[in-house]
């Protein structure tokens, strides 16, 4: 964090705090409200650790982080989209398509079901670039449709979700692609004890943070979500920014696809169904508002971790998968209720 941005953040907090202190004078309550989701995460970790000490085992912690990284990366793009008052339902399908194309270009030469039989072993950069290109292009198409035809983001990305899945199935005639090169598998592996997916996630979170807080693109995203008409009149190139925004979200889905393929070692054309909803859930738990103009990268990361800790912890505790889903749904709703109270205009 640069000095100036620290100053901004500090002053912002000070101002907010001062106002709230005046408002009700109860400091603890203020902090609970403001950092509620962090407290919830800590509480969750403490609770699960007491019930099952194995949770705090470093191997398990890294497991949680690795598991969180795939939808966590998707949630980064999704958070920016929701800040702009949009939605992207297609990221699960984009992940599958980008992932399966990457996998088809990243098989070992001796693979039994070689997708391109005459293709030798490609350096890992080839599947990576292919996946990123697919993500950016499909996302860009989403953004283009939304920006230039004016159809709602929900509809545009619903269409893309269905089409991209169809293309994925067509690409391999419904078959999975397996036996990836060791270099590719490394992307889902470890450096020493540290899982590579976690490093990639951290890097992506950092990039997204800078993008959102330190570039005009980021300011424009907030402005578009805050009041799209005012943004236009203020000279924001709304169309161009929407195009970049959705392309970025597609790109993040592609990064998630690479991590996914590297970790699993294969990609099935039916992979990542419903991941878009998990990404939306992580964003929303992290305090991103569907009203637009509100949300942070830090929130998105914490939201993803809440889901990761919850899933891992409940599994460790031997809780039925059905219960896990019920609890997850409940947490999404409660998180939004708390957030709405926090964001409601104080009169």
């Amino acid at each position: 964090m640069s000095d100036s941005s620290k100053k901004i953040a500090n002053e912002a907090e000070k101002a907010e705090d001062l106002k709230q202190q005046k408002a009700n004078g109860n400091k603890l309550l203020i902090y609970l409200k403001k950092y509620g989701i962090i407290f919830a995460l800590i509480l969750l970790i403490v609770g699960i650790s007491i019930a099952e000490p194995k949770f705090l085992n470093p191997t398990n912690i890294f497991n949680v982080l690795t598991q969180s990284s795939i939808y966590g990366i998707m949630a980064l793009g999704m958070t920016l989209i929701i800040i702009s008052k949009g939605i992207d339902l297609s990221v699960g399908s984009i992940l599958a398509f980008a992932g399966i194309v990457a996998a088809s270009l990243g098989q070992v030469s001796t693979a039994t079901n070689k997708f391109f039989p005459n293709l030798g072993e490609m350096p890992v950069i080839v599947p990576i670039l292919a996946a990123l290109a697919i993500g950016a292009i499909l996302g860009g198409i989403n953004g283009g449709l939304i920006a230039y035809t004016g159809i709602p983001a929900f509809i545009a990305t619903l269409g893309m979700m269905t089409m991209a899945r169809g293309v994925t199935l067509m690409y391999t005639s419904g078959k999975p692609v397996t036996q990836l090169t060791p270099d590719f598998m490394f992307l889902g592996g470890k450096i020493g004890v540290i899982p590579v997916p976690v490093l990639i996630y951290a890097l992506m979170a950092g990039i997204t943070w800078v993008l959102l807080n330190h570039t005009s693109f980021g300011k424009n995203v907030y402005a578009i979500g805050g009041n799209i008409k005012a943004a236009e009149i203020s000279g924001v190139n709304v169309k161009k920014n929407l195009l970049i925004l959705y392309a970025f979200c597609g790109l993040m889905a592609a990064v998630a696809a690479i991590v996914f393929a590297g970790r699993v070692g294969s990609v099935h054309p039916g992979a990542a169904v419903g991941y878009e909803l998990t990404a939306i859930a992580a964003s929303v738990i992290g305090g991103t508002s569907f009203d637009g103009g509100i949300g942070t990268v830090g929130g998105a990361v914490i939201g993803a971790l809440v889901l990761g800790v919850l899933r891992n912890g409940l599994t460790l505790l031997g809780v039925q998968a059905y219960w896990q889903q019920i609890l997850e749904g409940l947490i999404i709703i409660v998180a939004v209720i708390i957030d709405m109270r926090k964001n409601s205009k104080k009169k």
Binding site: Y222, A230, I233, G235, G293, I294
Partner: peptide
């Protein structure tokens, strides 16, 4: 079509002039 209600005074003020702060 004027203000961005959920954004800060700071963000509301700089939005038309971002270009010159890059």
């Amino acid at each position: 079509d004027g203000i961005f209600p959920s954004l800060t005074v700071f963000q509301n003020t700089i939005i038309a002039n971002l270009r010159s702060y890059i």
